[in-house]
Amino acid sequence: MSSDKKWAMVIDLQKCIGCDTCTVACKAENRTPPGISYNVVIEEEKGIFPNVTKIHIPRPCMQCDRPACVQVCPVKATYKMENGIVAIDYDRCIGCRYCVVSCPYGARSFDFGEDYSREMIGYNEVQAPEYGIYRGKREKGKSPIGNVRKCMFCYHRLQRGEEPACVEVCLGDARYFGDLNDPESVVSKLAASPRAFVLQEEMGTKPRVIYLK
């Protein structure tokens, strides 16, 4: 994708219905193994009984502008792409998991090599082309097994001119995706809304996933 793009996602919490369709679509799109979900929805209760309400907080990778994970990686396997996406070079990653510990959002997971081969015929035969790279069959001793993994805004879909899978399937139309460098884009306008906020702003990570109250 062109380097003049600065991809960002806006999630409207008033529209999220907690259906977990984004989680399922992400897992299917990226063929993630057991224990790894790039996109989860956290439930939070607010208020005191009987006046209790529940909110749903979708949590992909925040694609931070000042990512803690990049700072701690001893082999520079994690890096910030020009388009705003925080990426992982599986060929450089040594699986030390420093980045997992440093991420304040819990958005990273380690691939221990588990799979769904008992539940799904042919599961190991095909992998998703993460970061636009096809790695063939899923086999022990080969990436991404032994690597840290996370959401990458479905970079392989962006290269085809498509939206991330979670945005495409959202039943409540709660997710918006676009270029923050374009002042006329929907995400730019929503990011400037008084409803806009980011998670753990005090950490100084400057996330590119922005929420609407």
Rank of each mutant, 00 (worst) to 15 (best):
M1F: 12
S2W: 06
S3K: 13
K6V: 00
D12M: 07
Q14Y: 14
I17V: 14
C19V: 03
C22W: 03
E29C: 03
I36S: 05
Y38E: 01
E43G: 09
K46M: 09
K46P: 01
G47H: 08
P50S: 04
I55L: 07
R59A: 11
M62I: 01
C69P: 15
Q71S: 11
Q71V: 14
A77L: 05
K80Y: 03
G84S: 09
I85G: 11
A87D: 13
A87K: 10
I88E: 13
I88K: 12
D89P: 11
R92S: 11
C93E: 08
C96E: 07
Y98W: 13
C99I: 07
C99K: 10
V100P: 12
V101M: 12
C103D: 11
Y105A: 09
G106A: 06
A107N: 10
R108Y: 15
S117K: 13
M120R: 11
I121T: 12
G122F: 05
Y123R: 10
E125N: 14
V126E: 05
V126R: 09
V126A: 07
P129I: 04
G132N: 10
R135H: 07
K137L: 10
K137D: 06
K137M: 13
P144Q: 03
R149K: 14
C151M: 13
F153T: 11
C154K: 08
R157H: 03
Q159A: 12
A165Q: 03
L171T: 08
G178P: 06
G178M: 00
P183R: 04
P183M: 05
V187N: 13
V187Y: 12
S188C: 13
P194W: 00
P194M: 00
A196C: 12
F197K: 06
L199N: 12
Q200H: 14
E201G: 15
M203I: 04
P207N: 01
V209W: 02
V209I: 06
Y211D: 01
Y211F: 03
L212K: 00
